[in-house]
């Protein structure tokens, strides 16, 4: 699949934004109120909004994007749009109350957290629902999206307040464990992706043409000598050439370095700086991971080309 930069940026940035919103609204220890609270909220909401705006850049008609809110009953893409706007609107109220009164309303927070998680889930389902892309069509896809969104939010929270605790565990140690867990899920996702090809659906050129029962079927001639929308969008092959090197880069930048930095943060009095570096490193790792998510994915239509 064609790795569109706008969509890669969207999933990474919005994922981080909604992850931080999730944690803020669950009451993770952060500034009491006032300007610091406002800036933290702005960071979380800003990441989510910038991502969403970026996602409209890959549309043929961004000016009609508002129409995408209408089909939430059937379409995951529409659900994602509706949930994102609902999450941001509810979070805006939460953030304003927090900024001006210092009061972090628990019930509202719980609602926003649920909405944020549902938004990330809906984003992942846009891909996971597609039977045509076997790599994506699995429960592990939403699990990985949710895990990376949570970890991104967690490291951002650690950057703001490295002394914070969740369930009694210091943030750096929690980050250490969760980063490892998230990438373990991703490694499982990669292992499955390497194994399946089109085998889960049983599709091959024989079933694609319906001629498999007559003998070995292979493409003799494409319909046209040049490229077309389908070959550019779905028969993309660049990703597979350097996939292993890029996976290693993703693991080092996204998993190894953040884990080392969070361990350093745990033992230092001001853990915010290592956590800030961990945010940068995780971003590199996730951009690489997300690029591969698209570039490595094979689409059923490639059986015709």
């Amino acid at each position: 699949m064609h790795p569109a930069i706008s969509v890669i940026f969207f999933t990474v940035s919005s994922g981080a934004g909604f992850g931080l919103i999730f944690l803020i609204c669950l009451g993770v220890q952060l500034p009491e109120s006032g300007l610091p609270a406002f800036l933290v909220s702005l960071l979380a909401g800003g990441l989510a909004v910038i991502g969403l705006i970026s996602s409209t850049f890959h549309l043929g008609h961004p000016e009609r994007a508002w129409r995408a809110f209408s089909q939430w009953q059937s379409s995951w893409l529409s659900r994602e749009g509706v949930l994102a706007v609902a999450t941001l609107a509810a979070f805006a109220i939460y953030a304003l109350l927090w900024t001006f009164t210092g009061n972090r309303v628990e019930t509202l927070g719980l609602l926003v957290s649920l909405l944020a998680a549902a938004t990330v889930f809906a984003t992942a389902m846009i891909y996971a629902q597609l039977k045509t892309v076997p790599n994506w069509h699995v429960w592990l896809t939403p699990a990985v999206y949710l895990a990376f969104s949570f970890v991104s939010g967690l490291i951002l929270a650690g950057m703001i307040n490295a002394q914070g605790r969740i369930l009694g565990i210091e943030l750096p140690w929690l980050i250490f464990i969760c980063v490892l867990g998230a990438w373990a899920l991703k490694v499982a996702w990669w292992k499955r992706a390497d194994r399946i090809g089109f085998s889960e659906t049983g599709s091959d050129t024989g079933t694609a043409t319906g001629l498999g029962s007559l003998g070995q079927v292979r493409l003799l001639e494409r319909p046209h000598t040049g490229e077309n929308y389908l070959t550019r969008e779905m028969v993309h092959k660049i990703g597979r050439k350097h996939a292993m090197k890029l996976r290693l880069l993703a693991l080092i930048a996204g998993c190894g370095i953040p884990m080392v930095l969070s361990a350093i943060a745990a033992f230092s009095s001001s853990g915010e700086l290592p956590m800030a570096l961990a945010v940068l490193s995780l971003a590199i790792g996730l951009f690489t991971e997300r690029w591969l998510f698209f570039a490595e994915a094979k689409h059923a239509v490639s059986l015709y080309y």
Binding site: T132, L230, E233, H299
Partner: peptide
């Protein structure tokens, strides 16, 4: 009403849908 997101083309296993390069629908 088409916003040109291309998701329908991704959902089709047969490659039956193509984005118009001029109209972006």
């Amino acid at each position: 009403m088409c916003i040109g997101c291309g998701l329908c083309a991704w959902a089709c296993p047969y490659g039956a849908r193509e984005m118009d390069p001029v109209e972006n629908v």
